[in-house]
Nucleic acid binder design. Structure first.
Lengths: 250, 250
DNA sequence: TGAATACGCTGTGTATACAATATCGCAGGA
DNA sequence: TCCTGCGATATTGTATACACAGCGTATTCA
């Protein structure tokens, strides 16, 4: 134990998990690289048990992959893996929107969504949008998606959506940031906001099919834009999560 | 250590996980019941570290729930949780079928699916179906769904479908067994088989939307039948997985 | 007699020691 | 020179010990 000071305010497992995730997302650990427990113990300061725990959790999140002979490696993603993940989440959110519409949502429950919508409207009034406003947009957008998911009132579905969003590039914030690299960024944000407006309207009028369709379109748009952004890799370093893309895209 | 003989042929973690899952699914552990590590150590014969590992994995599978103050409890499911889980998997499989259709599948890749289909046809020729044949049907059906999922060639999607099928009542075998309790069981199996036939046809003709629609319908049918089966709880003990349903369905 | 405090026990989180296995390198023989 | 086998080393899997926290109970004081 010696002089290693232990921070008791937060569990060692969580601490190790966060530290490891940072290392992966920041690119300190390259995709495909094997990650050894001992090495992780040194860099995180926790001991082997919590580190192992953290590694297992990160595997579940999808950031790591178990090596059959033992140990873990940083997972590498192809461009298609990423677009599939986004479309996957869109499909799940579509189902959530349909559940919300079919099961009925009170005006009171819809209130936070509408507030979110209005706040984003306010932000988008700026042309061009400032860096600060964009950052607020990312937060509000994530909040909107989370609230929408909750409306489904289906714990199994919510759980699954959370898992699908665990990969940084598949999270609402992730793909908004990817799109921001495009010159048409502002236009894209405005279209996205239009989708948000439509889905609320569809849920209010209990039109399940329409609510579902618009969320899927929302995701498909994101996929198209991500492809564009990857073509002209200009400001792509904006999105550290993309460090996970394997260099040799197949 | 003393006289505890250790089985080295399979990892202790896996052994503990299987033993615990058996206990949960067999109903030895009631839903909502707290499960203590020490108790699990005694019943599984493994030591605390692998047991903890197994508990974490079972939590990820969705069978257990972490208690904030520490420890785990057996998760309880409402009837709606179960039908949502089935519909969720249907939606995911629909996406897989669409991917398969849109991305194209060679005749060679479709071969195993068709063999599966033919084998099931053979089984269904018996009227009424024997217990043995039914058991073969369950296996073949699971195989069909797994093969179909593979055809999507989308690792993220396959991964998600696997997770969605982890809960026993959400797996292909699970809901087939639930439906078997109904008097119209034979008829239901025949309709299901028709769905299988259509999805292969749609994939062959690259009709993504049709392939997707039929898989969703497939799941919706299962949900309807599950509801029926739960109404007249006659042979419901056929499905041990349903031990997880909380007694007071909300 | 009731309430409050203290003590003890059960159980989890963490650390570390030990055992088993896989991989890599080196040496010897074909 | 290449292949194979054996050994050493490194790393994971497993077991257990220790510490701290939460909770229940019992005892004492008002």
């Amino acid at each position: 134990m010696a002089e290693r000071e232990v921070d008791r305010s937060v569990s060692q497992t969580v601490k190790a998990q966060l530290a490891l995730r940072d290392q992966i997302l920041s690119g300190a650990l390259r995709p495909g690289e094997r990650i050894s427990e001992l090495q992780a113990v040194e860099t995180t300061g926790a001991s082997r048990t919590p580190v192992r725990m953290a590694l297992v959790r990160l595997e579940e999140e999808g950031l790591l992959e178990a090596i059959p002979s033992g140990g873990f490696m940083v997972k590498a993603f192809s461009e298609r893996d990423i677009s599939d993940s986004i479309e996957l989440r869109g499909t799940l959110e579509g189902l959530a929107a349909r559940f919300a519409a079919e099961r009925g949502v009170s005006a009171r429950e819809l209130e936070p969504l509408k507030e979110c919508l209005a706040a984003i409207d306010e932000l988008l009034r700026q042309v061009p949008i400032s860096v600060d406003a964009f950052s607020s947009y990312v937060t509000l957008n994530a909040r909107f998606h989370a609230l929408l998911t909750e409306l489904s009132r289906s714990p199994p579905l919510i759980r699954q959506i959370d898992r699908a969003s665990a990969l940084p590039f598949a999270s609402p914030s992730g793909f908004v940031m990817a799109q921001s690299a495009l010159p048409e960024a502002q236009q894209i944000l405005i279209i996205g906001q239009e989708h948000h407006r439509v889905v609320i309207d569809a849920i209010e009028n209990r039109e399940g099919a329409r609510a579902e369709a618009i969320m899927r379109e929302h995701a498909r748009l994101a996929v198209r834009n991500l492809r564009l952004a990857l073509r002209n890799r200009t400001h792509l370093d904006l999105l550290p999560a993309l460090a996970l893309i394997k260099s040799a895209t197949d």
